[in-house]
Computed example of a mutant assay.
Amino acid sequence: MLRRQLLAAAPLMAAPAIVQAQAAWPNRPVRVIIPFTPGGASDLMMRPVAERLERVLGQSFVIDNRAGGGGAVGLGAAANERPDGYTLLLTTPGPLVLLPQMQANLPYSSARSFTYISLMGGAPIVCAVAGNGPLRDLASYAAAAKRAPDAVSFGSSGIGSMGHLTGVLFGMETGSQLLHAPFRGAPEAQTSVLSGATTSLWDTAAANVAAIRAGNMRGLCVSSAERAAILPDVPTAREAGFPNVVSLNWFLLCGPAGLPDAITERLSAAVTSILAEPGIREKLDSYAFVSAGQVPQPQLAAWVAAEYARWTPVIRASGS
């Protein structure tokens, strides 16, 4: 009888210890996995926020760059960690919602492997042409693309990249067929446009700010819902008359599936507050980042699922 009473009481005895452990979080350093090499856009987004989280929460937030497999290595590592709040992940749409539609047998599932904490912002894609060329705006660019299949070419940072898929999305929305020229990165795509070998590029705005500001390239649009503060004269595709051409290389803070609600809510509130700070906002603006919209934490899983579905027909059309 005594044994039965002790077994029945065990969950009640354990519960206060679990609650206490969660309430004490964090009591040691927190690791944030970034599934790309150091120095990229994800680092630029996460590092200033991590520095502020250290002050707000009283523990170190250590960046762990786990590059490989287009981001799959880092996401797989994060998915297999304990959901105790001491391993987090900053992901972009590439490995979370694009790669799973292009590659089978990944070590994670976008629907089941993660707890989504905070949508932190995003990097818009810019459509740019040579500064001394005849194309002056997005309407003339669309008209040129409609004249004949492959009449307009565009470079990107690679097959299946957000720049590539945004160019495909523009072609779908305008009923035109653009010729894609994949490169290893933004510098090569830019060189091709400036030499006249490629008509245009669809690539991350931040990588092309200097060339646009110098007049070497002309920004025809950014793909975000709002203009980038660092390129105030470049309209959005919506403003240019193409309302459905909207994309963003967003940044989403996550934890492994099963992260306790108390930790998720505390992190979400802290990140939201930090992102509203003028100093942080100014720094992120300088990197050509924009808001990704206000999505409450409980709605993030549905938002990710909607992003997954939104890009499915574009990925099919791209042949990626």
Rank of each mutant, 00 (worst) to 15 (best):
residue 14 A to K: 13
residue 14 A to F: 11
residue 14 A to C: 13
residue 19 V to Q: 15
residue 21 A to W: 15
residue 22 Q to W: 14
residue 28 R to K: 14
residue 28 R to P: 02
residue 32 V to A: 08
residue 34 I to V: 14
residue 34 I to H: 10
residue 35 P to A: 10
residue 36 F to M: 10
residue 36 F to K: 12
residue 38 P to E: 07
residue 41 A to V: 05
residue 43 D to L: 05
residue 45 M to L: 10
residue 48 P to S: 09
residue 51 E to A: 12
residue 52 R to Y: 07
residue 53 L to Q: 06
residue 55 R to C: 00
residue 58 G to C: 05
residue 62 V to S: 11
residue 67 A to M: 09
residue 71 G to L: 07
residue 73 V to G: 04
residue 75 L to Q: 04
residue 77 A to F: 11
residue 77 A to G: 11
residue 78 A to H: 07
residue 80 N to C: 06
residue 84 D to K: 09
residue 84 D to Y: 04
residue 85 G to M: 08
residue 86 Y to P: 00
residue 88 L to A: 06
residue 89 L to R: 04
residue 94 G to T: 12
residue 97 V to H: 01
residue 100 P to V: 08
residue 103 Q to L: 06
residue 115 T to N: 06
residue 117 I to D: 01
residue 119 L to Y: 04
residue 120 M to C: 09
residue 122 G to A: 05
residue 126 V to S: 08
residue 126 V to R: 04
residue 126 V to H: 13
residue 130 A to N: 14
residue 137 D to P: 00
residue 144 A to V: 05
residue 147 R to S: 06
residue 148 A to E: 09
residue 150 D to G: 05
residue 151 A to S: 11
residue 152 V to C: 08
residue 155 G to Y: 04
residue 155 G to Q: 03
residue 156 S to L: 01
residue 156 S to K: 05
residue 163 G to F: 03
residue 167 G to N: 05
residue 167 G to C: 05
residue 170 F to A: 01
residue 173 E to C: 00
residue 175 G to V: 04
residue 175 G to Q: 06
residue 175 G to M: 07
residue 177 Q to I: 08
residue 178 L to Q: 07
residue 179 L to Q: 12
residue 179 L to D: 12
residue 180 H to W: 09
residue 180 H to F: 10
residue 188 E to P: 00
residue 189 A to V: 04
residue 191 T to A: 15
residue 192 S to C: 09
residue 194 L to T: 14
residue 197 A to M: 14
residue 203 D to H: 13
residue 203 D to Q: 11
residue 207 A to S: 14
residue 213 R to S: 11
residue 214 A to V: 07
residue 215 G to S: 12
residue 217 M to Y: 13
residue 217 M to C: 10
residue 219 G to H: 02
residue 225 A to F: 09
residue 226 E to D: 14
residue 227 R to D: 04
residue 228 A to K: 02
residue 230 I to M: 14
residue 231 L to A: 02
residue 232 P to D: 13
residue 236 T to A: 05
residue 236 T to M: 02
residue 236 T to P: 02
residue 237 A to E: 00
residue 238 R to N: 04
residue 238 R to L: 03
residue 246 V to M: 03
residue 254 C to F: 05
residue 259 L to Q: 02
residue 260 P to F: 11
residue 264 T to W: 03
residue 272 T to G: 13
residue 272 T to P: 02
residue 275 L to P: 03
residue 293 G to L: 10
residue 293 G to F: 04
residue 293 G to K: 13
residue 295 V to S: 11
residue 299 Q to S: 15
residue 301 A to I: 01
residue 303 W to Y: 15
residue 307 E to A: 02
residue 309 A to T: 14
residue 311 W to C: 02
residue 314 V to H: 01
residue 319 G to I: 08
residue 320 S to N: 15
residue 320 S to E: 14
